Computed example of a mutant assay.
Amino acid sequence: MNHNPLMFHLSVYSRMVLPAASLLVWGGVMFSAVTWGLRWSATGVVPSDATFAVQGLPEMDLAAAARSLGAVPVQMAASPDLASRFQLQGVMAGGPNAGAALISVDGQVAKPYRVGASVTEGWVLQSVQGRRISLGTSMDGPPMLALELPAKK
């Protein structure tokens, strides 16, 4: 016969705690196993019957992209073929004989040029004024082509 009520109460409590703690521990172990199993299966080998369509990047029309961004060449005394070779994409004005421009030649990637630098064979960046540049055959010669960035919206 149990004549100590506190001992009786603790023995019932301890019988419930041990199974509950065991259940929690094993639940954590199962959760961890399932999580790692799913992670490993996601990075595993692709089944051989799966087909994937490999797509390359679409061809890009650089002239159309430049026009959509607002780089419109403006010519002074040059033929239309000549004006279409150069595309002004950015300007950094400096002093009277300083500054730089970001110019794309013949649809290639735009490169920065300083005033006085040769843009391409026979063409020199003569001046930069605000949003406009002048190109010519020499630094001291008359400007043959002017390119201007479009007005801000």
Rank of each mutant, 00 (worst) to 15 (best):
P47I: 00
P47Y: 03
S48R: 10
A50S: 12
A50W: 14
T51M: 10
T51F: 09
T51A: 10
F52A: 14
A53W: 11
V54M: 12
V54Y: 13
Q55F: 13
Q55H: 14
G56E: 10
G56C: 01
G56V: 06
L57V: 11
L57W: 10
L57P: 09
L57G: 08
L57A: 14
E59G: 10
M60V: 15
D61F: 03
D61S: 07
D61V: 03
L62F: 15
L62R: 15
L62P: 12
L62V: 15
A63I: 11
A64R: 07
A64E: 09
A65N: 13
A65Q: 15
A65E: 14
A65S: 12
A65D: 13
A66R: 09
A66W: 06
A66C: 00
R67G: 06
G70F: 03
G70I: 05
G70M: 06
G70P: 05
G70Q: 03
A71V: 01
A71W: 07
A71D: 06
V72N: 07
V72A: 08
V72P: 04
P73A: 09
P73T: 08
V74H: 08
Q75H: 09
Q75A: 14
Q75P: 12
M76A: 14
M76D: 12
M76I: 14
A77R: 13
A77H: 11
A77P: 03
A77D: 11
A78Y: 00
A78N: 04
A78F: 01
S79G: 11
S79M: 08
S79L: 09
S79A: 12
P80I: 06
P80N: 06
P80H: 06
D81S: 09
D81Y: 07
L82P: 00
L82R: 08
L82H: 03
A83H: 04
A83Y: 02
S84H: 07
S84C: 04
S84M: 08
R85D: 06
R85T: 04
R85A: 04
R85C: 06
F86H: 04
F86I: 00
F86Y: 02
F86G: 04
F86P: 06
L88M: 04
L88K: 01
L88F: 03
Q89S: 08
Q89C: 12
Q89R: 15
V91N: 01
V91H: 05
V91C: 02
M92L: 13
M92R: 14
M92G: 06
M92H: 09
A93K: 01
A93H: 02
G94N: 00
G95S: 00
G95K: 01
P96K: 10
P96R: 11
P96L: 09
N97Y: 13
N97Q: 15
N97E: 15
A98V: 07
G99E: 00
G99A: 05
A100V: 04
A100S: 15
L102G: 08
L102E: 11
I103T: 05
S104L: 00
S104Y: 06
V105P: 06
V105E: 01
D106I: 03
G107W: 00
G107T: 05
Q108A: 15
V109D: 13
V109G: 11
V109S: 14
A110P: 08
A110V: 02
A110S: 07
K111E: 13
P112G: 12
P112K: 14
P112I: 13
Y113D: 04
Y113V: 00
R114I: 07
